[in-house]
């Protein structure tokens, strides 16, 4: 076999691989058991109904009711139609990916993107999330661009070189899964044969709630266990809130990595014709990077995570569990948030 034949054969092999892998990338459905999947489908069809997207973790998903927000905004002379694109446990890089995909949809042309700032940590949060690194949910956002973002973030982080390679290896592994659609064949086949997958919400839920769903609507032992986290340890919850209030009084300096990622994110939101506004919900998260950057004026920020300023939302009777508001408190909070947003936008 001469060099030319070998080169042509290798190229043909690579081409065959690329054709099937490319098809897999295109055809792989979004993760099952992920509320955002149906929300994206809704946006693809009805994205032109909305002027603002609210994106972030379950703190966004369970705390921002678009119906209440829109009514209050209209009353205050800022008529906006909002859609809640929050999803449970979405970390910064995942949120960023979801947002990019949403803004790429033909019908989605929002004026504003309201987004939870996050801490841009490439580290899996728990041992479970590390072992879940190759789950559909984790793999789906590891496209080349987002993997590059996360690898750059790891490289510029301040952990040890050993830990950096450890993190990079895990993300690269997920990337390989993504680009080859590893293990997705049956789901791809199912998507063509209309085999439906279990989803945590229904399309009707998404349309009627405009992406919002109260935790009270969720049933099952997991939800009950979450509720008990609050009711069984009220002193622990109160202690945590006190600690957060103290920490918020003197936020730590924002790290360079977080600043860089937020600047990058703002640039791409603006390039899509929308204006970013960072929102910190009244959750149990400190978000000191965002608070500091907000204080500096580096990011447009509306923060509600101060128990001294917003004691109503941190009262145990306002919570479903230690991290999330209940339905009644969400209605109250959405109203206050809309008022604050109207003030912010008309400033």
């Amino acid at each position: 076999m001469n060099v030319l034949t070998a080169a042509v054969s290798t190229l043909c092999g690579a081409l065959g691989f690329a054709v099937v892998a490319g098809f897999g990338l295109w055809a792989t459905p979004w993760p099952e058991d992920f509320a955002v999947t149906l929300k994206m489908e809704h946006l693809a069809e009805h994205g032109d109904r909305y002027d603002a997207l609210i994106v972030g973790s379950s703190n966004i998903y369970r705390s921002y009711d678009p119906a209440v927000i829109d009514a209050e905004l209209a009353e205050r002379g800022v008529p906006l139609r909002t859609f809640n694109l929050g999803g449970a446990s979405m970390f910064s890089f995942e949120t960023d990916y979801v947002l990019r995909r949403a803004l790429a949809l033909e019908k989605v042309r929002p004026e504003y993107v309201l987004i939870e700032p996050g801490d841009w940590d490439a580290e899996p949060k728990t041992p479970e999330s590390l072992s879940n690194m190759l789950s559909n949910r984790s793999v789906f956002w590891h496209d080349p661009r987002q993997t590059w973002n996360v690898l750059r973030s790891i490289a510029k982080g301040d952990t040890s070189p050993w830990h950096k390679q450890y993190l990079a290896r895990h993300h690269l592994h997920a990337f390989c899964y993504k680009v080859t659609s590893y293990g997705q064949g049956r789901r791809i086949w199912g998507s063509f044969t209309d085999a439906s997958e279990d989803q945590p919400v229904t399309p009707e839920h998404v349309a009627s709630g405009r992406g919002y769903q109260a935790l009270e609507e969720m049933t099952g032992p997991v939800m009950q266990a979450r509720r008990r986290l609050l009711t069984n340890d009220l002193p622990g919850y109160k202690r945590k809130i006190l600690e957060m209030a103290e920490a918020n009084a003197a936020p730590l300096p924002a790290d360079a990595n977080c600043r860089r990622e937020l600047e990058r994110q703002m640039a791409f939101i603006r390039s899509a014709g929308a204006e970013p506004v960072y929102v910190v919900p009244p959750a149990g998260i400190q978000a000191h990077h965002a608070l500091r950057l907000g204080e500096e004026g580096a990011i447009p920020l509306i923060a509600f995570n101060d128990p001294n300023l917003y004691p109503t939302f941190y009262a145990p009777q306002a919570r479903f569990d230690p991290n999330h508001l209940n339905r009644a408190a969400t209605a109250l909070f959405s109203k206050d948030f809309a008022a604050e947003l109207a003030r912010f936008l008309t400033r």
Partner: peptide, 23 residues
């Protein structure tokens, strides 16, 4: 021909990756 066999092998391998067990 070699080029076609290699194309099919590349495509077959990519397909095998897609139908591999996830874990």
């Amino acid at each position: 021909p070699n080029w076609l066999a290699c194309f099919l092998l590349g495509a077959g391998f990519a397909l095998a990756l897609q139908f591999a067990a996830k874990d």
